[in-house]
Design a protein around this nucleic acid. Structure first.
Lengths: 344, 344
DNA sequence: TCTATTGATTAGAGCGCTCTAATCTTGTAG
DNA sequence: CTACAAGATTAGAGCGCTCTAATCAATAGA
């Protein structure tokens, strides 16, 4: 059996309560005793029992995290940020996955709650808002990548509209006028990105072209082929704002398959700044969301509630940034006969 | 305050002990009482307190998981498999990251142990073997992607040697004879992959060519440029076994930059079957490891120890499989000089 | 009628810790 | 030398549960 506080107390010749004080580095312990206790603990390999501590103190250092899909690099990054912040503040994460099914997700949340965590963080939950409210009655709740009107829950979201606008403005700044968006369909955040695209285009007096697609490379290919079939070559959009990076890669493939070069003939912007986009082979210009930062902010929002420092809800809307790489270039008017050489 | 067992007992008009029995669905409770208790629990929204239960029963339903880098898709997949198996068996995961630093990692493990988990799983740990032994004294330990000679710990590894051999044999089967390996340097598992490559080549009477590289796309580029500088075109290896998928992508870029086509001139095999490899744009032939399965096996090995069903160590060595896509093709003799392929 | 026997229920101690209130030491001022 | 405050230490109750052993009720056997 692992040693308990009692064992340490006996060995150090003090009371259990004193050991408890030392373990919580209370200032009201004499240096002599503290040293003695620490030595005894060291010798026995003693380590406080977190659960017993939690039970006795009626406080928790545990944060529940519900992730829908860890394979999604976005969530993995958020969790990393969360974990770093939590670790630094002495909190521990207990993880559960929901598998994008409302039932499984609700079970997952239930399990998390049975630990009586200090709070819980739900990453892109799909359960109904009412369920979230129920959970929020038990402990502070922070939502990531999901909005809420409830005053009891905080939210951290990336500003998808701003991200698309960034992409649009980048292309417009490069001289592009015919710009199309490859829409993510029903994917999380896709609607926002589309709205942002449309709004930005209209703000500049341009007609938004939206092609329904999905967040996959094959989706991007199909969408581009649709564009190629719809527009005659001179009318073809010269700038593409893809729904995400995978979609952008598919779009680029289809363009190149058709003899069009990126970025000489068509500029393409991705979204998400995945490891894919950073590959030199692709060097995809893309929109980056501060994912790790989102995790950190989620933690902080939670902690403020835990500490009772705040009761009004907080709504973080994080600003994405554009990472310019090699798939976007200035739009040059060039006829087939007088095409300028690549790179100039 | 959330309701406790006492509250439920009072409302149902029974003792706390009876409620406890119902909560653990003991068979020795009359149907009448059981119904009454369940109704009371339902009405109060009662949910057992996992930590209190754990403390009282001196058992734990918590499994500690140390992940070095969640961003690494490999680990995310293993954790998914782990989580699925654990959830099904009623265990909960508590997660911690180690950041590839021995000190931080040891802290992470320490934190996990302070929960008195049923067992812990370390994903590709970098702490010294002795530290692992220390941890193994406290509870069962399973190592993933790391070997151990200790009889107290189980291990789950992918057979990197077999994976490389698979790649080599695939290329040889396609008629390639000059095959080079782009070595992963000090990366986890790289040594095994290199050994497997060398052994497989020798088994076929071929001279293994190894270029020191790393598991990044720029590493792959550099390695290929080195090859191009070293070998005259007719002597250039026609098959490349990259250290991982990123490396393979870099290699392909460098080859194409030099006017060589993949797979017509050079065949390239990656390793890991990341989402990258599956992109139609790349369609990388690569070696796949059963990652989710590894998570499941790790869970099962742990549970056997937890239940005391086994005391001898288990060493899982999982067989990778080859996913053939579009970056490998038959080797055709087509050098300008008509030079026959070496070796045959 | 009384005692076993079986099954259902409960009292009460205890898991390893925290926390309040009480007790024990000092040091210092009067 | 006494009084008392301030600091250091400890006793003991209790967190929400489990578990053993004891109690109780009901039926069966003699």
């Amino acid at each position: 059996m692992r040693p308990t506080m009692e064992d340490v107390a006996a060995r150090a010749g003090v009371s259990r309560a004193l050991v408890s004080l030392v373990m919580r580095n209370s200032p009201k312990v004499s240096d002599t005793r503290r040293a003695a206790v620490l030595r005894a603990a060291e010798e026995l390999g003693y380590q406080p029992h977190v659960m017993a501590r939690s039970l006795a103190s009626r406080t928790s250092t545990v944060l529940g995290v519900m992730v829908n899909d860890l394979r999604n690099a976005f969530f993995a990054d958020v969790v990393e940020g969360l974990d770093a912040a939590a670790q630094a503040a002495g909190f521990d994460l207990i993880l559960n996955t929901g598998g994008r099914s409302p039932t499984r997700e609700w079970n997952a949340v239930h399990t998390l709650l049975s630990f009586r965590p200090a709070g819980i963080i739900l990453l892109s939950p799909v359960v109904p808002a009412a369920s979230i409210q129920v959970a929020a009655k038990q402990c502070p709740v922070v939502l990531v990548s999901r909005t809420s009107r409830a005053s009891t829950v905080d939210t951290v979201n990336d500003d998808g509209e701003a991200g698309s606008a960034l992409a649009v403005e980048h292309l417009i700044g490069l001289g592009h006028r015919r710009i199309a968006h490859l829409d993510g369909g029903g994917a999380a955040g896709a609607a926002q990105r589309r709205r942002g695209f449309q709004a930005a285009m209209r703000r500049h007096g341009l007609e938004p072209i939206v092609v329904r697609s999905e967040h996959t490379d094959t989706g991007g290919e199909k969408a581009v082929r649709e564009l190629l079939a719809t527009y005659s070559r001179p009318d073809l959009p010269t700038g593409l704002v893809a729904g995400n990076d995978f979609n952008a890669v598919g779009a680029i493939s289809a363009l190149e398959e058709d003899g069009l070069r990126v970025p000489e003939d068509v500029s393409v912007v991705g979204y998400d700044n995945t490891s894919l986009a950073a590959l030199r082979h692709l060097s995809l210009t893309t929109v980056d969301q501060p994912r790790t930062e989102m995790g950190r902010l989620a933690f902080e929002a939670l902690i403020e509630r835990v500490r009772g420092e705040r009761t009004e809800p907080v709504r973080h809307l994080l600003h994405p940034s554009l990472v310019v790489r090699a798939t976007t270039a200035e739009f040059l008017i060039r006829s087939k006969e007088g095409r300028p050489p690549r790179g100039t």
